[in-house]
Write a protein that binds this DNA or RNA. Sequence first.
DNA 1: GCCAACGTTGGC
DNA 2: GCCAACGTTGGC
Length: 154
Amino acid sequence: MNYWLFKTEPDEFGIKDLAAAPGQTASWEGVRNYQARNFLRDQVRCGDKVFIYHSSCKQIGIAGIARVSREAYPDRTQFAPDSDYYDPKARVDEPRWWMVDVTFETKFKQVLSLDKIKSNPSISALPLVKKGHRLSVMPVQENEWQTLLTMAQD
DNA sequence: GCCAACGTTGGC
DNA sequence: GCCAACGTTGGC
């Protein structure tokens, strides 16, 4: 099993929205970065655990946990002209963008803030805390996961 | 809303 | 294939 961190803007779709979704499950659509896409398509597997990270908002940080409940399938929004994520170059027989389904597991009592995450030297390798990071889907090492989980539960 | 950092695009 | 211009991300 692998661990991941997915970024989202809670004004658009946050941990609360996931918890309130039908079956507490939602498709993780709209990833439009090739490196993130490759992770989603090639390495994210059913049962993997995912930190849900809130960006561009009041409380920046990890808000909770989800698990992957369906592996990569074509992101439907790339074919939808009225979607913000529409990609005119994508072809149905050769999808460019992929998504997975995630299912809610846990919402932390309080968001584990980016400040706290940055202040812990044992997770300095996480792409999230690197300068200019822009990856919206990134792997988390098992020891990093455990450390972050412990911090979130304090 | 600013702006630094980064990814993508497209002319050459 | 280089690289300048442009658009986007995301913390502040």
